[in-house]
Amino acid sequence: MAEKQINPWLKNGLELGPPLLFFIAYLRLQDKTVTVAGTDYDGFILATAIFVPILLASTAILWKLTGVISRIQVFTAILVVFFGALTIWFNDDRFFKMKTTIVYAFFAGALGIGLLRGQSYLKFLMGDRLPMADEGWMIMTKRLALAFVAMGVTNEIVWRTQSDQFWVTFETFALPAFLFVVFMSQAPLIERFSLPDGEDDQSPGDPS
């Protein structure tokens, strides 16, 4: 099914809004404690409880408006619900912090498996929007896989050694900014291996 075009600002708001709202909720609630059925929940747990339904609602709205939902969005939503539920049930913020590492580890692993098979799963996800020779896709896939590994390792170090506020800020802004820079830095590669619209390169070559 073809994706319906919607206002870019609305789309960005639905995609980026939930993490920003989590950040704002944490800042507002970080010094508060709520007692439910004899159990005390701190600001991090409360912000997590707010974030999960907001993410699901924004994903559902985006799906309703565009008519499509990506595999990445589905996978992310499942992990958020699962680890968010564990965080709230066990009253332990470590589950939610590990969720970020697992997401990046999954992406790195999936791309790595494709590379071992001589394929670019990144092309499978983005090839219809970015015509590029297979050689270029293989190079970009390797770079993105390494970037996801670095992000996962860094997240583990940060949440285990820094304060909650530092991690929330890092997870909300630093990691997405790093990924954005990685994508933007691929511009020369894309220009070098770009193909005319409608043309596809089926060559299996892996330049390494």
Rank of each mutant, 00 (worst) to 15 (best):
residue 88 I to F: 10
residue 108 A to I: 09
residue 106 F to Q: 09
residue 128 D to L: 08
residue 126 M to W: 13
residue 133 A to H: 03
residue 135 E to N: 04
residue 101 T to P: 00
residue 119 Q to M: 10
residue 99 K to S: 05
residue 67 G to V: 05
residue 90 F to D: 13
residue 120 S to F: 00
residue 70 S to I: 07
residue 117 R to T: 04
residue 62 L to P: 00
residue 90 F to Y: 14
residue 79 L to G: 15
residue 89 W to I: 05
residue 133 A to M: 07
residue 51 F to Q: 03
residue 121 Y to Q: 05
residue 55 L to K: 11
residue 88 I to Q: 02
residue 78 I to G: 09
residue 54 I to L: 15
residue 59 T to S: 14
residue 112 G to D: 09
residue 127 G to F: 06
residue 104 Y to T: 13
residue 102 I to A: 05
residue 111 L to E: 12
residue 134 D to A: 14
residue 132 M to N: 04
residue 120 S to G: 01
residue 61 I to F: 09
residue 124 F to K: 15
residue 67 G to P: 03
residue 136 G to D: 02
residue 72 I to H: 11
residue 91 N to D: 07
residue 95 F to W: 15
residue 133 A to S: 07
residue 52 V to T: 07
residue 67 G to T: 06
residue 72 I to G: 08
residue 131 P to C: 08
residue 79 L to D: 11
residue 74 V to N: 12
residue 122 L to C: 02
residue 107 F to S: 08
residue 117 R to F: 11
residue 134 D to N: 15
residue 132 M to H: 03
residue 82 F to E: 06
residue 107 F to H: 06
residue 82 F to M: 13
residue 132 M to D: 11
residue 89 W to A: 14
residue 91 N to Y: 02
residue 91 N to E: 05
residue 54 I to C: 08
residue 124 F to P: 04
residue 98 M to C: 11
residue 96 F to H: 01
residue 60 A to P: 06
residue 88 I to E: 03
residue 53 P to T: 00
